[in-house]
Write a protein that binds this DNA or RNA. Structure first.
Length: 512
RNA sequence: GGUCGGUUAGCUCAGCUGGUAGAGCAACGCCCUUUUAAGGCGUGGGUCCUGGGUUCGAACCCCAGACCGGCUACCA
């Protein structure tokens, strides 16, 4: 293994040994009494110079400019960078100048974690800095970081842009690209805001099984696994919908879960095999109520993350200010194509789709054709948040039939930046109707639809005991995060997006 | 799944019609002996993704494979 080390890695190992020879522990276990972050000092110093007479910060050494007895360096902590000024005689009290001459100037490498104690001041050139009085080594770095540098003209050197490098070694990406760290901070703020919003309204955050004997609640192919003791097949959940609705049968007023779901399907800019879905169910409400709730929550989220309802996304500014635009699905199609399809039969729809240049498979039913027309002619035009309501019943086996419109269900999707971000309905709680819908799905399955739902007897049993009228929603957290953080790919809002394993070692043989 | 493109130093990248490897940053050394704005000079560093083939000669051409990416398809 050692013969594979690069020159720079060898130098760092030599420095590590020198450190040990000098009696310095390169990986000390003691706590380090950090008092400030670099951000706090940058923000607070101007108005409270006296407050920073003694500060203690810690982080990675990111640059070093040595000029004889005095040096400047930059330390990066979780909040940003801080320049520090190191003067030989200030960190080395007596005759022994080893700490400065050897340790600071030679043995430290960029990327090492150090802690410093000192006082804040402003240099002659106007840069807020910490004058170091004590320097402590906290952790030695043995691999060179691709640290970016920016010159006086604003030209950036060595920025890591290779997606493979960024995703496989996210720890490096996070270290050298502060804006990547910030993206994930925003994602976390977004999720916290949603959690607060729902918890304040009295809804209960719950956890339901990831390993399910029968997958359901969505149309997708699952991952399959096996439990040894029970000698049973389990599936990684594709949704948690049916479990949350069982809890509604159990009597809660509202339950929600931020759930990792798994779908064994293609990968793209918008799809990762595991992804996060927030599902919420509220008793004694319908989908109209849920639309109001959703736009209020997303508006709240935008305010919590950005302090405004206007968010820059790519070339567009998206406004999450209520109310959002609402179209029925037929209304949207009429609006964007000028064609009223509401009274058409399947043959008429087929001709209409052909006329619009949309490819229609023979196997497609009425609902699927309508969905196809919408997808081709409307969805990509919906940049500002928009609700599309009242979907064909064939596509929605878990949604309640519409109060007044035959053939439709009480369902809406939220579309934003041309992508679906949520899907909601008045939940079907009629156990007899639900059984019929499941049986229709079984028929689809027999005809070869790999994504058709299974018939879940236990779920039907639960419904037979009675579920209150309930509104439910699923929000694609990763997709919403892409919009809220202005990222083009789902991989940029997941710390560790799924990739093929690196083949650095021969593939392991199966063994247990 | 289809298709197009990519893979060269620790990082970002050049490399012509095939002639045997380059830059900047980083590293190392020296200078500067000091409140800097990538400070100056120098040195080292390569399995050109892998395996075959063509050729006197391959980073470059051909074949196969690996991995990555863009479009596209699938995906309620």
């Amino acid at each position: 293994m050692n013969q594979n080390l690069s020159e720079q890695e060898l130098v760092r190992r030599e420095n590590l040994q020198k450190m040990i020879d000098l009696g310095i522990e390169p990986y000390p276990s003691a706590t380090f009494p950090v008092t400030h972050t670099s951000k706090e000092i940058h923000e607070g110093y101007e108005t409270n110079k006296e407050g920073y007479k003694e500060v203690c910060i810690a982080g990675r050494l990111m640059s070093r400019r040595i000029m004889g007895k005095a040096s400047f360096a930059e330390i990066q902590d979780s909040t940003g960078k801080m320049q520090v000024y190191v003067s030989r005689d200030d960190i080395c009290d007596g005759e022994d100048k080893t700490l400065y001459n050897q340790v600071f100037k030679k043995i430290l490498d960029l990327g090492d974690f150090i802690g410093i104690k000192g006082y804040a001041f402003v240099t002659q050139t106007g840069t807020l800095s910490i004058h170091v009085t004590e320097l402590t080594i906290l952790s030695k770095s043995l691999k060179p970081l691709p640290i970016t540098k920016t010159d006086a003209d604003g030209k950036v050197y060595d920025e890591v842009t290779d997606p493979e490098f960024k995703y496989r070694q996210r720890y490096v990406d996070l270290t050298v690209n502060p804006e990547v760290r910030e993206t994930f901070v925003q994602r976390s703020k977004m999720i916290n805001a949603m959690r607060n919003f729902m918890t304040e309204r009295g809804y209960l955050e719950v956890e339901t099984p990831v390993l399910q004997p029968m997958y359901g609640g969505a149309a997708a192919r699952p991952f399959k696994t096996h439990h040894n003791t029970l000698d049973t097949t389990f599936y990684l959940r594709i949704a948690n919908e049916l479990y949350l609705k069982r809890l509604m049968v159990g009597g809660y007023d509202g339950v929600f879960e931020f759930a990792k779901d798994f779908r064994n399907e293609g990968m793209s800019r918008f799809h990762n095999p595991e992804f996060t879905m927030m599902e919420l169910y509220v008793a004694y409400k319908d989908y109209e109520w849920m639309m109001d709730f959703t736009e209020e929550m997303v508006e709240y989220v935008a305010m919590a993350v950005h302090g405004t309802t206007d968010v820059q996304v790519g070339e567009n500014v998206i406004s999450f200010k209520r109310p959002w635009k609402r179209y029925t699905m037929y209304g949207a199609i009429e609006h964007f194509t000028g064609i009223d399809i509401s009274e058409m039969d399947e043959a008429g729809l087929r001709d209409t789709a052909k006329g619009l240049g949309i490819h229609i498979e023979k196997s497609m039913g009425k609902g699927k054709i309508i969905d196809e027309i919408f997808g081709e002619k409307c969805e990509h035009l919906l940049i500002q948040p928009t609700f599309i309501t009242d979907y064909p019943v064939e596509m929605s086996p878990l949604a309640k039939k519409h109060k007044t419109k035959p053939g439709l269900v009480e369902r809406f999707e939220g579309i934003c930046n041309a992508k679906e971000i949520c899907n909601a309905f008045s939940e079907l709680n009629d156990p007899i109707d639900q059984r019929n819908r499941f049986e229709e799905q079984l028929e689809l399955g027999k005809r070869g639809d790999e994504e058709a739902m299974q018939l879940d007897e236990d779920y039907l049993r639960a419904l037979e005991y009675g579920m209150p009228p309930t509104a439910g929603i699923g929000i694609g957290i990763d997709r919403l995060a892409m919009i809220i953080t202005n990222q083009k790919s789902i991989q940029d809002v997941l710390f560790f997006p799924q990739m093929k394993p690196e083949q650095t070692v021969p593939p392991q043989t199966e063994s247990e």
